[in-house]
Amino acid sequence: MSIQVAGVSKHFGAFEALHDVSLEIAPGELVALLGPSGSGKTTLLRVIAGLEVPDAGRILFNGDDATDRRVQEREVGFVFQHYALFRHMTIFENVAFGLRVRPRALRPGEPEIARRVLRLLKLVQLDWLADRYPHQLSGGQRQRIALARALAIEPKVLLLDEPFGALDAKVRKELRRWLRRLHDEIHLTSVFVTHDQEEALEVADRVVVVNKGRIEQVGTPEEVYDHPATPFVYEFLGNVNVIESEGGRDYVRPHEIEVTAGPQSGSLAALVDHAVKIGPVVRLEVSRRDTGENLEVELPRDRFDRLGVETGAVVWLRPRRSRFFPQSAPHEAKIA
């Protein structure tokens, strides 16, 4: 099912959480809403789910206006950041809940409920936990149960709010790869919220970068990382050197700077203040000789070794790629 967000605005008191946001999500797509905390990404997700009512704008599912449709009737699967599992129910009963609360005429029989719940528990590879209670499970297991519970009502859309936010680093990585594989299996239109750029870039088909209630950029992971549309996207996705120049600023990624021992055309001289070896890469902290500005450069370990420079040496820098943003309101540089 496709999702269309058309001109949605939402205020909480004086705070503007969403400002005229429009977005289209194609059927079967896995989309990440990426932004810092307070950017409005969770609000946007809750508006799509029907948990928040927008001040203005519409939400369309498959072209049908769903803005005024009751939450119970939206057929939306929602996974909460802190799982929101029913703590007094077993895992089985948690997953079965959405089937049990159906009106009698639409409610499947007990054997059918058991069959469906077990199928879902197998899907999330936790069928052996059916009789446990939520507090007996690890965070990663709880999150998968929350997903199974959301899928039990056979939703047309799956929405996940910071699905890996409360997990530790190792489980996060495993779970997000697992989610990607699961999505490739079931092909359900899915939207997830995250503040972790790595997560968004690794898992999503398309990334929506959100900041201060507005969409900064929409694109594939490659597009948003390699061709950031705004200074915000540049700074939010990965490290960047911001170089003041006439009438604006140049944005250069640390790994997109070429380092040579001698001068070349268009290169500038800099002093190596510090060289930090981080596994396979080396990060140089340098200062420009002309302006004294501090810059960061990243280069592969072997390239650094061949260069043979030490702290205090002079190197020559040339950006392989940079982008100039004129001095103006950041939103004027926005590419829709």
């Binding site: 909480f12 008191g13 029907g50 948990l51 928040e52 009512v53 939450v71």
Partner: peptide
């Protein structure tokens, strides 16, 4: 605004 709901809720 005494006892007036501040925002919509689905509950």
């Amino acid at each position: 605004m005494l006892f007036m709901r501040r925002s919509h809720s689905v509950l």
